[in-house]
């Protein structure tokens, strides 16, 4: 069973969201997603300053198995991207909720957080897909 931390929020497209409590969130892909992808070999992310809307296609994860789009789970402005993934994309596999994070977003509308799945909801969603 994959690791689904309780303190995070999730979307059905397998991104996780951590509310940093200062109007920003950190975003990555879940343990379940990295397990399905296999070894990640490239990650393409948006740039700092980019404005994204919930549901936008904002990047690509290329693994040994397939290329998958990364979707913005929320609307906002990109305030940081994880540059370590440039040289060490394997961090997405080894530490998906930590050093393998993707971007940090300053939210346009914090109410959007209420639409996200909690850990149980996401676990159920994964179950339904398997």
């Amino acid at each position: 069973m994959s690791n689904i931390p309780n303190e995070l929020r999730y979307v059905a497209s397998h991104e996780w969201i951590r509310d940093e409590g200062d109007g920003t969130v950190t975003i990555g892909i879940t343990d379940h997603a990295q397990d399905l992808l296999g070894d990640v070999v490239f990650v393409e992310l948006p740039e700092v300053g980019d404005k994204v809307s919930a549901g936008d296609d904002i990047g690509v994860v290329e693994s040994v198995k397939a290329a998958s789009d990364v979707y913005a789970p929320l609307t906002g402005e990109v305030v940081a991207v994880n540059e370590d993934l440039e040289d060490a994309p394997e961090l997405v596999n080894s530490d998906p909720y930590g050093d393998g994070w993707f971007i940090r977003l300053r939210l346009t509308d914090a109410d959007e957080l209420d639409d996200l799945l909690d850990a149980d909801g996401y676990a159920e969603h994964c179950e339904s897909e398997s």
């Binding site: 296999g38 070894d39 070999v41 040994v64 394997e90 596999n93």
Partner: peptide
């Protein structure tokens, strides 16, 4: 077996 952890 596809891999035993990491195919890379």
């Amino acid at each position: 077996p596809l891999h035993y952890g990491s195919q890379v």
